[in-house]
Amino acid sequence: MSLVNYVIYRLSQAFITFLGASLLIFLFVRLLPGDPARLIAGPEALEEDIQMIRAQLGLDRPLYEQFATYMVSLLKGDLGTSIKYSTPVLDEILARLPYTLVLAFTAEALAVAAAVPLGILAALKPRSLVSQLVSVLAVVGASLPVFWTGLMLIFIFSVELKLLPSSGSGSPKHLILPSVTLAFFLIGNLARITRAAVMESLASNHVVTARAKGLSLGKILTRHVLRNSLIPILTVASVQLGALLGGAVVTETVFAWPGIGSLLIDSLFFRDYPLAQGVIMFTVGAFILINIVTDILYALVDPRVREVLWKTV
């Protein structure tokens, strides 16, 4: 029961965060220089036409009035209509969402599948080649710009080897290069955190107790080392996933991947206020949701966290 209470508590908290975020987003989007009406009307347009378009979009009214209208429809579940596409913002986001979800989860899954075993091996043999590889990956992976990695992969696998498509979507093959690009960026950091966490667990006294009991090496590792190392790994992986769900803007652009990230860039270039607001709101929501899920995972891993979390309700 306490889990249900906790989720209700966190969701109600999230609602308040959401309201605050929507005000900030509303203001920041309008701080961008430029005018959507002028963009729609085109460079040769007459001042009257621009004023007319502005009135149509409701941009001539005072800011607080625009905000009130926006909030009222938001609470009704209406994110407004895109200026550029003249379609509901929600439809635009929902059309792009599957692509972002698939890319984000694939990239993170790849990163976890590679980084966690690497980190564990590196921790078990701190002076081995694997451990040095982790250190190198951590620096290289995080410092190489994603667009460069992406272009290199395109060069090797699309241009030279002609094995994989360089851009677009539609088949599982299209997913490979963008997700590998993103995963490469994430692996180093995640492997380094895993190594540090596992090394710390390995050195802890309860592992000595586990050995003194006569437990097998496998059980010592899975029960008494890995489980105790999970919290930092979960933390980093969930922050990474949150960032990916907000749209991997550069990667999506390089590979012409029709996800949330490229939608955001699009909407910002066009000063499409409702669409930009909608996309950013979605990102905020994704982050809040992932935070809640992560906290619940912490609680499942560690009974001490469980106690503290359930008590906050």
Binding site: H206, V208, T209, N228, R304
Partner: peptide, 13 residues
Amino acid sequence: MVFQDPSTYLNPV
């Protein structure tokens, strides 16, 4: 074996 500091020699989870 019985260890010195029972708090750290038990696994908290």
